[in-house]
């Protein structure tokens, strides 16, 4: 469905993503895990064409990513990115104007569930409210792939539950979800595949169930193994 082959991105002398190859398949929920600077965000941004790779490429349904892939891939950035003059209503209208798969009804439902109103100005939102708004506008799309970069960052426990339940509603056999987060234990409950990134490399892609059955470990244990003491050897 979505695939990258030997993709590399350098920022000056620093390599953010180094020869990563990865396949995202439909019907699965992926957790993209790794500490800050491991390359998760850059990899997601390359998947939607916001960042151009120095080598390698991303492909969607066998074709290089571009206009067509952006119609079916919904990306939620960790940073706020709406125009300052926009209200929640303007943001919905903007998405409705540009994305055929956007549902204004679902957007309004999600806003109501997140306890947000349409007259809220983007520039006056707290970080928690902004995170909810980003989730609402992203999940109101009927996309084939959702890439959510740190959707739970800075969110209190109750709001996290709201966000996770909204995200899980999108799950179906032809949809893939990729969620990056530091909150491994939160994601453990919902994901079926974990992607471990470290120092700009892809360390391992493993099924949560497979790790549990074959290795007798949880994703949290695996995370500790990779990033904790001795984890350097895996990279």
């Amino acid at each position: 469905m979505l695939e990258c082959r030997e993709i590399t991105k350098n920022y000056g002398r620093k390599t953010a993503v180094d020869h990563v190859s990865l396949k995202i398949e439909p019907g699965r929920i992926y957790a993209m895990l790794g500490p800050n600077g491991s390359g998760k965000t850059t990899l997601m941004k390359m998947a939607v064409g916001l960042v151009k790779p120095n080598a390698g490429a991303f492909y969607y349904k066998g074709q290089p990513i571009g206009i067509e892939s952006r119609k079916e891939i919904a990306y939620m950035s960790t940073e706020p990115y709406f125009y300052a003059w926009m209200t929640a209503k303007d943001i919905g209208k903007y998405y409705e104007d540009f994305f055929e798969d956007f549902s204004m009804k679902r957007y309004r439902d999600l806003l109501a569930r997140m306890e947000l109103t349409e007259d809220l100005k983007a520039k006056s939102l707290s970080s928690g409210m902004m995170a909810k708004l980003k989730i609402a506008v992203t999940m109101a799309r009927d996309a084939k792939i959702y890439l959510l970069d740190e959707p739970l960052n800075g969110i209190d426990l109750l709001a996290r539950d709201q966000i996770i339940s909204s995200v899980l509603e999108a799950v179906s056999s032809d949809v893939a979800l990729v969620i990056s987060s530091h909150l491994v234990d939160e994601l453990e409950k919902i994901v079926d595949t974990a992607i471990f990134m470290k120092n700009s490399h892809l360390v391992e892609v493993c099924g949560a169930e497979e790790v549990r059955i074959q290795q007798g470990k949880s994703i949290v244990d695996k995370y500790r193994e990779i990033y904790g003491h001795g984890g350097e050897e895996l990279c």
Partner: peptide, 13 residues
């Protein structure tokens, strides 16, 4: 700035 995403996430070249 990050508002560039508003333009470059849309299905427009």
């Amino acid at each position: 700035t990050k508002q560039s995403y508003m333009l470059f996430l849309t299905p427009k070249n």
